Simulated assay, not measured.
Amino acid sequence: MATTKAAETARNSKPAPQGDTAEIQAQLEAVRADVAELTRALASYGKAQKDGMTEAARARAEALKGDAEAGLAEAEARAREAYQRTETAVRDNPGTAMALAGGVGFLAGLFMARR
């Protein structure tokens, strides 16, 4: 049994003809070239994706910046308007303004004393 297997292995391990080796080498080179091309294509695709994502993020940041600036301008306008209304109310009714200020001060003093 062991001699039969050894004889079969010896029979199957004959050196390949030179033409087959050259053909295998050519196929291996073609596979290597294909792998190299795929690697380049994937690198190029990854760079394009990165560039696209970077540009999208930059555009979104600019849009958010614009929204924030608009919100800030609106808040400033509202604060100025509220200040003007308060100033007008104080000028029109100075006694009422003084009474309100005194009341607020009194309440603030009570809350601070309870601490």
Rank of each mutant, 00 (worst) to 15 (best):
M1T: 02
T3D: 12
T4A: 13
K5I: 11
A6L: 10
A7N: 11
E8G: 04
E8M: 05
R11E: 04
P17V: 14
P17F: 13
P17N: 15
P17W: 15
G19F: 12
D20Y: 11
D20G: 07
T21W: 15
A22V: 12
A22M: 13
A22W: 07
E23V: 13
I24F: 15
I24P: 08
E29I: 08
R32D: 05
R32S: 05
V35S: 11
L38D: 11
T39C: 09
R40W: 10
L42F: 10
S44H: 12
S44K: 13
Y45H: 05
Y45Q: 06
K47S: 03
R58S: 09
A59H: 10
A61W: 12
K65E: 09
K65N: 10
A68R: 09
L72F: 06
E76Y: 08
E81F: 15
Y83L: 13
E87Q: 12
E87A: 03
E87R: 15
V90Y: 00
V90N: 03
R91K: 03
N93G: 03
N93R: 07
P94G: 00
G95V: 03
A97M: 00
M98R: 09
A99C: 03
L100V: 14
G105N: 01
G105L: 02
G105Q: 01
G105E: 01
L107F: 08
L107R: 04
L110T: 13
M112Q: 12
